[in-house]
């Protein structure tokens, strides 16, 4: 099974296999013998190649939270198919945080320029204006004032560039 792990800005294509000696993670930098031993209460002993460390690990859906050596890391596991499918979009404005839509400043069909205000959102103490990521014509508005929207919710979509 192949997966793409997003770690910050970088993407790592990985797959896992089992041989007689245990698990091998094939990464873009070559194979990595690895093991994960549960120590109870979210603690694990993780080893990869020559490295070994104790870590706290929590998973939620496709997000893996790892506390390792005094730092917190969030890894997003992406199915290659989802990644490929996601490439097909023609740009959209997404909610940068979960919260409430305060106002919608555009209508479908409107021509907007990059940076133009589209939607105003609020999430406790913070008002955020979502701006057009690029020039284009609005295809659809997927939210209305008062809507509660989750993180990365597609607020506004654009028509495909000619």
């Amino acid at each position: 099974m192949k997966k793409i792990f997003r770690l910050g800005e970088s993407e790592h294509r990985c797959s896992l296999r089992q041989d007689a000696d245990g698990l091998v993670l094939d990464t873009e930098d070559g194979p990595l013998r690895c093991a994960l031993q549960p120590l109870g209460a979210a603690r694990y002993c993780v080893s990869a190649g020559e490295e070994q460390a104790e870590a706290l690990i929590a998973r939620h859906d496709d997000r893996i939270w790892i506390r390792l050596r005094g730092r917190t890391h969030v890894i997003e596991a992406v199915d290659p198919l989802d990644a490929a499918a996601a490439g097909g979009h023609d740009g959209a404005a997404e909610a940068p945080m979960p919260g409430t839509v305060i106002s919608v400043l555009v209508e479908p069909g409107a021509e907007v320029t990059a940076g133009q205000d589209l939607v105003v959102m609020e999430s406790m103490k913070l008002e955020v204006t979502i701006r057009a990521p690029h020039d284009g014509r609005i295809a659809a508005v997927h939210c209305a004032p008062g809507d509660q929207v989750p993180l990365k919710f597609t607020l506004v979509t654009f028509e495909a560039a000619p």
């Binding site: 192949k2 199915d79 290659p80 198919l81 490929a84 499918a85 490439g87 097909g88």
Partner: peptide, 11 residues
């Protein structure tokens, strides 16, 4: 839309 997606789908 792409060969990569096609092959991922096959997988």
């Amino acid at each position: 839309d792409s060969e990569a997606e096609a092959i991922a789908r096959a997988r």
